[in-house]
Simulated assay, not measured.
Amino acid sequence: MDNIMKTATIWLLYLLSACLILWAFLPDIRTVSLGIASGLAVSAMNAFLLRRRVGMIAEAAMQEKARRKGIGFGSRIASVLLLAMIAYRYPDIINMPAALSGTMIMPFLILAAAIMHTMKENSSGKG
């Protein structure tokens, strides 16, 4: 899981740097590029929160404790809602559709990284 997240994070940083370069050099699409960049940042934060939560659940399952903690989904939704409220308040700075679409990119990057790592493992001659 760590290799998959590391690969997805590297791809995310490439996308984030491309958005910031577009923001710097193309003033016509500044709101869109900043919206995508802020959405990517929120998406990365949500992915790391989810990764931490899955690790905590796996650790609790190994210890056979049925202890539940609770605001994982709420904090991830709250971060997206905060971004939407900021984009709604400042539409001349952040484009809301771009920001909301940027929040959906990290799960697809994780999926692509997992497929890549699975194909690499299967083609290495093991089993």
Rank of each mutant, 00 (worst) to 15 (best):
M1H: 09
M1V: 04
A8I: 03
T9D: 11
L16G: 03
A18D: 03
C19K: 01
L20Q: 01
W23I: 01
F25I: 07
P27N: 05
L34A: 09
G35P: 01
S38H: 00
G39S: 09
G39T: 06
G39Q: 04
V42K: 00
V42W: 09
S43A: 15
M45R: 05
M45C: 10
N46C: 12
N46M: 06
N46L: 11
A47R: 05
L49M: 14
L50H: 02
V54M: 14
V54D: 13
Q63T: 06
E64P: 05
A66W: 08
R68D: 08
R68T: 12
K69F: 14
G70L: 15
I71W: 12
G74C: 08
S75P: 00
S75L: 15
A78M: 14
A78Y: 06
S79W: 09
V80N: 08
L81T: 08
L82F: 15
L83P: 04
A84V: 09
M85H: 03
I86Q: 03
I86T: 06
Y88F: 12
P91D: 05
I94H: 02
M96R: 03
M96D: 00
M96H: 05
M96F: 12
P97G: 13
A99Q: 08
S101L: 14
T103F: 01
M104C: 14
M104S: 11
I105D: 04
M106D: 06
M106G: 01
P107Y: 10
L109P: 10
L109K: 08
L111T: 07
L111E: 06
A113Q: 06
M116W: 08
H117M: 05
T118P: 00
M119R: 13
K120V: 11
N122F: 13
N122W: 11
S123D: 12
K126I: 14
